[in-house]
Amino acid sequence: MGEINRMSAKILVFSTEKISDPAIDMAGLMKLHYPPTVYTISIPCSSGIKPSWILHAFEKGFDGVFIAADGSDCVYGETCTEKTGALVGKTHELMKSNNIDPARLRMAAICSVCSEPFVKQIRSFNEYLLKTLHA
């Protein structure tokens, strides 16, 4: 990886096709920069993420996983927030039992116009990961 990327943590983002994807796209459109080692996988709904995917990402070498959750905007219903929260809680427990710092999994509701909040969250997460994993 190039010289310029040494100070970036490797972050996997689970983003949703209808809600947070547009926000992340618009961050690019607005040239709101964030580390280039942040990779997005699009899924229909944040409450459909399996804990095993997150653990697989850590196992393969990702420093952090960020869930750009639908929140109350979810097109599949109001229970999304609660269910996404539940799967994050469950994954945190699994991470603890695997000696992985639970703070390496972060979640925030990112609506379709939340480009700036997304970039802010990612920059802050990157800083945390660099401080705790690469200091």
């Binding site: 310029i4 961050a27 690019g28 040239k31 709101l32 920069h33 964030y34 997005t40």
Partner: peptide
């Protein structure tokens, strides 16, 4: 949107 524009500050 997720590579060239988001990282126009960092071509590598």
């Amino acid at each position: 949107e997720q590579a060239s524009w988001a990282h126009s500050d960092n071509k590598i």
